[in-house]
Amino acid sequence: MRIRGMSWLVGIGLLLALGLGGCSSGGGAQAFQDDPDGYTLTVSPTSVTLSPGATHTFIAVLAQGGVPVEPQPIVTWSAVPERLGQFSGDVFLAGEAGQSGSVVATVEVAGTTLSATAAVTISEENGLPDSLISVEVVAENDEDLSAMPAGYCVQLIALAVLESGQVVPITGTVQWSVSGGIGTVTQSGVFSAIEPGTGRIHATFAGFSGFTPIRVVCPGE
């Protein structure tokens, strides 16, 4: 009789252990699947203005269902037109001034070729608006930042607010940072949600700083 009672208690303990816990790993990175549907390739930043001879690192992320896959595939980079500049790995070297075009990222996944582009302008100008009064931070595709699942990523962009009231994307170099211990942000503005909680994504440009609040939640909330 004592053995049966102990077995019953052990069973209850196992059920409680399985039922308790915080965020599951279901919102993490996904592996490749045979079905190419649902895969998206994004390049960040989506547009940039560079001085002749300047270098810039572009980032390409392959995701499925909004979640970056692991491992990330090998990316082939190119410039269109070719005279726009050249790549060494994912680092772009800008060509002569007075040009505009695109950089193209290409990957192979499940027998399908996917590509994504970013706009590039080569100019002697530094892209600094003379009438800049403040900087704002927004999600590029208007994603909901009030409840972002852990394991997901989002492209953020910095906007210049001008004295005229006009709001334009900043094409110069922006310094990005994150507070609150909720995730990481690249210097191209890609935020990866890691830990549930609240925080801020900050962007600094030409001495002006702006931020957007963001809340990371457990997947499924």
Rank of each mutant, 00 (worst) to 15 (best):
G95W: 04
V216K: 08
A160Y: 00
S164I: 00
E108A: 06
I74Q: 14
V154A: 10
V69N: 05
G220C: 07
R83I: 07
D90F: 11
V61L: 14
Y152S: 15
I182E: 09
A79P: 02
P219Q: 05
L114F: 08
G13M: 15
Q64D: 11
E124N: 13
Q166K: 03
S188G: 15
P73K: 02
Q86Y: 08
S88K: 13
L156Q: 04
A206Q: 00
A29Y: 11
M148S: 13
S146G: 10
M1E: 14
G220M: 02
V217Y: 12
A17S: 14
V138N: 07
P68N: 05
P71V: 10
T112C: 02
G165W: 02
G66I: 12
V103Q: 02
G26F: 12
T57V: 15
E195D: 10
S7C: 03
G199T: 13
G65A: 10
V67P: 00
V103L: 07
Q64E: 14
L15P: 06
A79K: 03
L15G: 07
P71W: 06
A116T: 04
G165T: 02
A116W: 00
P129Y: 01
V190S: 12
G210D: 04
S78H: 02
S131V: 11
P52V: 11
L9P: 03
Y39E: 09
Q166H: 00
I59G: 12
G28N: 15
S188F: 05
G151H: 05
E136G: 12
V67F: 10
G197I: 08
G98F: 06
V217S: 11
F208K: 01
S102M: 08
G207S: 00
V174A: 09
A31P: 15
A147M: 14
G98L: 09
G180T: 04
E163H: 00
M1W: 13
L93G: 15
S209I: 05
G89Y: 13
L145G: 10
L9E: 10
I157V: 10
S134L: 03
F58P: 09
A160C: 03
Q175C: 05
V178W: 05
S44C: 08
P219E: 04
L18E: 06
G28V: 11
L132R: 01
A29K: 14
S115N: 04
P81F: 04
T204E: 07
V48T: 09
G22K: 01
A150D: 06
Q187K: 11
F32W: 13
G101T: 04
E82W: 01
